[in-house]
Amino acid sequence: MKFLDNQHFSHQHILNAFKLDIGKKIDCNACENPITEPFHGCYSCNYYIHDQCLNIPRSLQHASHPAHPLTLLPNPTYSSKSFSCNACGSQGSAFSFSCAHCEYDLHIHCAKLPAKILIDKHPHELNLLFVSPYKDQNVAFVCDECHGIANRDNWVYYCAHCDFGMHSNCTTGNVTGKDAASSSQSGHEHLMDSVTRQVEDIQAFNEAQERLAAATLEAKMNARGRKAILDMIDDSGYRRNHYYY
Score class of each variant (00 low, 15 high):
K24W: 05
T36E: 09
D27M: 11
H11W: 03
N16E: 09
S79Y: 04
R226W: 05
D179T: 10
H188S: 15
E200M: 13
E32I: 02
L217G: 01
S80D: 09
Y48P: 03
A67I: 15
Y78H: 14
C110M: 05
N174G: 01
D144Y: 02
G89P: 08
Y104R: 13
S194K: 12
C85M: 10
P114H: 04
L54A: 11
H40D: 09
C143S: 07
A215I: 09
N206C: 11
M232Y: 12
L129Y: 15
N46M: 05
S84V: 13
F9W: 08
S10C: 06
L217V: 03
G225V: 00
A208S: 14
D21K: 15
H68G: 02
C170S: 09
W155D: 02
Y104H: 13
H190F: 12
H188E: 15
F18Y: 12
K227A: 07
S90T: 12
A140Y: 09
T172P: 00
L118M: 11
S59A: 12
L72Q: 13
A214N: 15
C159M: 09
V131D: 07
N127C: 02
N86G: 03
H124Y: 07
C88I: 01
C146A: 04
C99T: 12
K227Q: 13
R197P: 00
G173I: 11
L54V: 02
R224M: 01
S132E: 03
L4F: 07
H101K: 15
L129H: 14
Y244S: 02
D21A: 11
E32S: 14
E200G: 02
N151P: 00
C159T: 08
H65L: 04
N222M: 08
C99L: 07
L126V: 07
N241Q: 09
L212Q: 09
T171K: 15
L212F: 11
D163L: 13
K81M: 02
M192Y: 08
H147T: 06
S236C: 05
E32T: 06
A111C: 02
S90N: 14
S132L: 03
S184T: 10
R239H: 01
S194G: 10
H107L: 01
P123M: 01
V156K: 10
H50F: 07
